[in-house]
Design a protein around this nucleic acid. Sequence first.
DNA 1: AGACAAACCTGTCTGC
DNA 2: TGCAGACAGGTTTGTC
Length: 277
Amino acid sequence: MPELPEVETIRRTLAPAVGARITSAWTSGMGLHMNRRPPRAKLQKLVGTTITGVRRHGKYLLIDTDGPYALLAHMGMTGRLRLHAAREARAPHTHVVFGLSGRSPRELRYSDPRRFGQIDVVERGKEREHPALGALGPDALEGNIDGDVLYAASRKRKQTMKAFVLDQSVIAGMGNIYASEALWRAQVRPTKRARLLTRAQATALADAIHEVIAKSLDNGGTTLADFVAADGAVGENADHLWVYDRAGQPCPRCEAIIKRAVHQGRATYYCPTCQTA
DNA sequence: AGACAAACCTGTCTGC
DNA sequence: TGCAGACAGGTTTGTC
């Protein structure tokens, strides 16, 4: 579900939670990513603090409080972070719930059927010491990614461009949908070796990454099946994708038939005719 | 180093 | 209708 535009959409729609005090914390006890359980004792340390803001780096969200800790959340494939009225029934596979103060009681709920997501508590100011956050490269939206950055990062790399764009230590936030979209937009072949990327292509790719993300944000993110914002709204960007999940359909640029291939075990969509450089 | 496959899970869809 | 198999937005781990 969630690549950068979806996580950013969740971040923005969590704004109504800012200023609320956390009145309780609950977790199902189920393991999430790598069977790691949300740390129950640390979640309790958030109780009594007030939410002061929500940050994002790549696909990770950080919910800041006026206490010493922040909540770290990653959606994996099917994770949802939503605000609900406390009286609403909990969705299946709800694994973490925070009670929030306010005129009418609300809850911040994390649900994740596949349990590929992550929930953790980090000390504010020490975010980079968290292994997941410390490994991230510059953010694809806010990190000043440009042709120079991509050209420099791609030198000496034997990996394919598809793998390069998905590498979170190079660019944080790109996922499988937008990797295909950006490579198509920049007319870069997904199987091209990164070390062979030209300077002009690096610039085109940086521009394409920004364009693809901006377009998706304008459309509220891409909902293929699971993604919803914190207010429950689905994204409309699936209707505007150029190549992802469009095998057999005409390329929007040259009308050739879009193809699907599997690279590193993951689907890649591309145009075999105009995406050959 | 680095490239690749497998593993972690559940839900949904397809084809027989 | 039922069942097996493939597949899904991500990340980590192990193997070559």
